[in-house]
Design a protein around this nucleic acid. Structure first.
Lengths: 205, 205
DNA sequence: GTTTAAAATGAACATCGTTCAATTACAATG
DNA sequence: CATTGTAATTGAACGATGTTCATTTTAAAC
């Protein structure tokens, strides 16, 4: 039996999230079972339920870490010189997103594969973390909208992010048939951004 | 014991797909277990394995029906008069897509939630059905590209479909926080199409 | 040293996909 | 009609899953 003075409760929570994060990264979301996580931290399965209440709550915390890491990867400071067209900055941001999805594929896919059971609602603190993902792009979209037209800018950020996500997801899960030879998801995303931004410019401020 | 002369093997296959389809529609993908489907058709669980080999193979056939129904819903004949801007036609097509996703929510989500185990590859006949989904949109995109520039047109179709899908998926699964009040996924999709088409026109043929 | 409350346990329950020896059903044959 | 042989059907069994909770262990308080 693990001794109760081995770790404080908070330490144990952190250790467990670490373990689950590691298992997901190595063997995928489906491998992060209660028994597997318990074995990894050297405790019994029941302990996880003392700590989190359910596996779903643990999964939510793992996904929270994914969102934090993703946000960190995306929201690098604007290029120092300030040069470069907005579209290029967006493509660079999308590339960082794609790179993240590639490097943390299992964590990233888990964001969309894990769903709470019907009754359970996503807690607001989690929704806030999702919301935060859109902010860096919103800032890049500033030049295309009047200062007071926040609504359209927020909309554009969501449309663009949702679209980039859709393309990456279809590719990562193999749901989209390989297009004619040389056409990667990178090409698709760049094409989306170029065309969308051109549309923004044409539509006018 | 069900009598073996009750149905031919082909009939039994059809009946089983029907049953699985019905269960998914009513109670979601997770409810379509081997035992539940078996009970629904009045056979033992083992029979399903005689027919399909594995639950994954049955799920693939259910998803095939979803793709067929979706294609039918999307590919309605072009409006008779031939009037209307392409962007409007695309919005109408996207609306049919969204409506389908709404009416057959469980079937539609299953398309993306169900994944074959690591080793197993998606059969080509299934990939063809996915491929076919893009065709109606490809045709609507004809006016924007030179006849010989098939590659860019195919790319645009995939970008646009992938994006529409991404927006619908995020909304259907509740992964995107409700935006500021009055901003539905319908608005987001229409905005995407308007801006993207404007971009296509600006980029020029 | 005793008491007590919290922490940790792991067997138990109802599920799941899957396997496969045993059973049943039916057509062909004698 | 009886017999045989084969194909269809079965359901118990296996190793998993998430979850519960009575039981045991631990460490602090008295």
């Amino acid at each position: 039996m693990a001794r109760r003075s081995d770790h404080t409760r908070d330490e144990l929570v952190a250790i467990t999230i670490d373990a689950a994060w590691k298992i997901v990264g190595e063997d995928g979301f489906a491998a992060a079972t209660a028994r597997r996580v318990a074995k990894e931290i050297g405790y019994a399965p029941g302990t996880i339920y003392n700590l989190f209440g359910s596996m779903d709550d643990l999964y939510l915390l793992v996904s929270a870490r994914t969102l934090d890491t993703l946000h960190e990867a995306i929201a690098v400071p604007d290029c120092p010189g300030g040069g470069g067209k907005p579209a290029d900055k967006m493509k660079a941001m999308a590339k960082r997103y794609r790179d993240f999805a590639g490097e943390h594929k299992n964590h990233w896919i888990m964001l969309f594969v894990h769903n709470l059971p019907d009754g359970k609602a996503v807690p607001t603190w989690f929704g806030d973390k999702v919301e935060r993902i859109f902010q860096p792009l919103e800032e890049l979209l500033e030049p295309f909208f009047l200062p007071l037209d926040q609504r359209r800018r927020r909309m554009a950020a969501r449309v663009l992010w949702g679209s980039v996500h859709g393309l990456c997801f279809l590719e990562a899960t193999g749901k989209i048939p390989k297009v004619t030879g040389n056409m990667s998801s990178a090409d698709l995303v760049d094409n989306l951004i170029d065309t969308f931004v051109a549309g923004l410019e044409r539509t006018g401020i």
